[in-house]
């Protein structure tokens, strides 16, 4: 399985990532997921989220998830990009692409990766509220 993990403070240019997609005609499924910063939560408006990470452990834990995904499903390629730092409302904070022979395994693997990363990968976010210049939990 080809794998690629990027943790970056640079905005995610999805078109550029898609253009770099590894591909051959034996693959019948490409699943992409984009997590986007909402501009509101039930308790108020949000202008951005600030992401921080224990980066060395985050890379290790992502690696373990990639290993497990490869064990569970016949994935050809798994690429994941996660923003760190301040991500404005409307911007993509997480982008995942999975290429596989069939849609079932690609969809299942993508959903599983998102759920598991929210359980074990040490990345945190805090809201920067609309009308505030500083962070708020």
């Amino acid at each position: 399985m080809r794998r690629e993990l990027t943790l970056t403070e640079t905005p995610i240019d999805e078109a550029t990532w898609v253009a770099g997609r590894p591909w051959d005609a034996s693959n019948g499924a490409v699943v992409t997921f984009s997590g986007v910063v909402r501009d509101h939560e039930p308790d108020g408006g949000i202008r951005a989220l600030e992401y921080t990470a224990f980066e060395r452990m985050a890379r290790h834990q992502f690696g373990l998830l990639f290993d497990e995904a490869e064990r569970r499903w016949p994935i050809v390629s798994l690429r994941l990009v996660h923003r760190l730092g301040i991500v404005a409302a409307g911007e993509t904070s997480l982008w995942i692409e999975i290429v596989a022979p069939h849609r079932g395994e690609a969809l299942a693997a993508c959903g599983w990766i998102v759920e598991e990363m929210k359980r074990v990968v040490p990345i945190w976010k805090r809201a920067l509220r609309t009308g505030q210049s500083g962070p708020a939990h």
Binding site: M57, H82, L94, M117, K118, P122, I123
Partner: peptide
């Protein structure tokens, strides 16, 4: 050792 609150990526 590292201590941290529940993770919140994505």
């Amino acid at each position: 050792v590292s201590l941290f609150p529940p993770v919140q990526g994505g």
